[in-house]
Design a protein around this nucleic acid. Sequence first.
DNA 1: GAGACGTGGAT
DNA 2: TATCCAAGTCT
Length: 339
Amino acid sequence: MFKKNDFNNNLLEWYQSNKRSLPWRETTDPYKIWLSEVMLQQTQVITVIPYYKKFITKYPLLTDLADADEEALLKDWEGLGYYNRIRNFQAAVKEVSSKYDAKVPDQPDKFFELKGVGPYIGGAVQSIAFNHALAAVDGNVLRVMSRLNQDARDVTKASVQKSIKEEIETLIPLEAGDFNQALMELGATTCTPRAPKCVICPVQEHCEAYSSHSVFDFPVKKKAKRKKEESYNIFFILNDKNEVLLSKQEDNLLKGMYEFPKYDVDTSIENIEEDLNLSLDQPNIHAGSEKHVFTHKVWYMEAYILYTFSPHENFVPLKQVRELPMSKAMQKLFNLIEV
DNA sequence: GAGACGTGGAT
DNA sequence: TATCCAAGTCT
């Protein structure tokens, strides 16, 4: 391992003069810092900024978010993805509200028990908000550390991440929060995946991969699996009152978001009538098709318009559809019939 | 440990 | 077009 003091000094000095101005760096409120970390999971800074601003305006206090309507939260989160994050976060702040008098626990073991708090969020919040000497190991940090040490282990493995976290915790100086943010900032802006700016790197002299011209060999990751492809027919079922059938997704994928009736391509109209308990008039108008790509699967969707005179509790006026939380997949489809 | 879980941007 | 990546966590 490299010289700890030199490394820390170089890194922290670089951070102080190069850190980006980000909205969550303007607060010391642990709730807001925590909120930003939840939003930043697998999500780029540039994407998070407007959502973070909206949330701290609408829910300035931890108790505001704890007491909010879940569907309203989901609507505000719409487009950010990984929708379980906001459900888990609300469950966690509810617990903080009732159990800890609405004060975010500054004891790591208590904080780690909360829903949605894993090794990264726990370390990030406890170090940035309370200066506890815990590492915050994200994708940036894994890349930086693997290059510094020419660490050829597969960084997608939890065991390797844990090992790197422990190694970093032997390095953490008194300014724990700044140190963690400096490491992440270095990865995000300088030690980047494809075009690292080694010539201006503040810790170049400590980097084994740089000295041996092997920066591009790190980090080592196993290849991503091929996405599963699924095909669906989606139906805009309209009645004579300008309403469309829309129901809340109960499955894990996009849970809580609203969707138009969606069936495997081999499902017959008769089966759909039976499933929805209504009768559908022909003709079946093809409204268009869309492809939607998730992290782990691809949806190929064909949209059709159908009419009915049957009553159903899930009809929503067309003008109110956009007030409900909907995934990008469903929004793309809805755009086919309503601009 | 491995797979589920969104979306958008870069190459 | 295909693939990777982005301040990860849960089951």
